[in-house]
């Protein structure tokens, strides 16, 4: 085995280098983009939480700051911080430009 030998340089015929990794739009990339931003978290029950996304984990457990709870368009509660258990989450939507 001789894995250390690099392939012979051949600048003329080698394919162009792959383009730099652009934003692939994956869920992970989206989440990296929205941490620290205002978001709307809707639960499967239809209740909305609007606030600043502090952080989240692989279960979609979410920590929100300056949270407002909305039910049918009415603000029903305010929380300084809120932990939302991920299994209840329907979606996380950006509420300001990412």
């Amino acid at each position: 085995m001789d894995e250390s030998t690099p392939p012979p340089p051949d600048h003329n015929s080698s394919p162009p280098p792959p383009p730099p990794v652009t934003v692939s739009g994956s869920p992970t990339d989206f989440l990296k983009g929205v941490v620290g931003k205002r978001v709307i978290v809707r639960l499967t029950s239809g209740v909305d939480y609007r606030g600043i996304l502090s952080c989240l984990d692989g279960y979609m457990n979410i920590a929100l700051e300056q949270t407002e709870e909305h039910v049918n368009g009415f603000t029903t509660n305010r929380y300084g911080d809120a932990f939302i258990r991920g299994n209840n989450v329907l979606y996380i939507s950006a509420a300001e430009p990412i």
Binding site: P27, F30, L90, Y91, S93, A94, P97
Partner: peptide, 11 residues
């Protein structure tokens, strides 16, 4: 109407 949104695959 929503802008960029992460939809939970669970449902």
């Amino acid at each position: 109407q929503l802008s960029q949104t992460l939809l939970n695959g669970n449902n």
